[in-house]
């Protein structure tokens, strides 16, 4: 299963490093990253493969949530299908 992880919030040092570190510890493979600064807001979108992940999706979401709180950013992990169904015909 592929998921989309988004990180939105105020830019600080090491956001990408900490998120990717958490993902690699859980054996989640990052397939694509796009990152930009929109009106001083950090916005990162990652496409990841969680087929071989060492934890359940719910647990991964929880860990990302907690990391987001500690970094002062909002992290969402959602199934890729939600975006493809909403935005493509």
């Amino acid at each position: 299963m592929r998921a989309v992880i988004t990180v939105v919030g105020k830019d600080t040092v090491g956001i990408i490093a900490k998120v990717t570190d958490l993902l690699s510890k859980n054996k989640v493979n990052v397939m694509d990253i796009s990152q930009s600064i929109l009106q001083e807001m950090f916005a990162m979108v990652m496409l990841v493969d969680i087929s071989d992940a060492s934890v359940q999706f719910g647990e991964l979401s929880k860990q990302l949530d907690a990391l987001g709180d500690s970094l002062g950013v909002k992290i969402h992990a959602m199934h890729e299908d939600i975006f493809t169904s909403m935005h493509t015909i």
Binding site: V4, T6, V8, S34, S36, A43, V45, K74, H87
Partner: peptide, 15 residues
């Protein structure tokens, strides 16, 4: 890959 704008739009709708 998916369009960043679309993804952020969906998240904004929910949040």
């Amino acid at each position: 890959m998916l369009n960043t704008f679309d993804i952020l739009e969906t998240i904004k709708m929910i949040e």
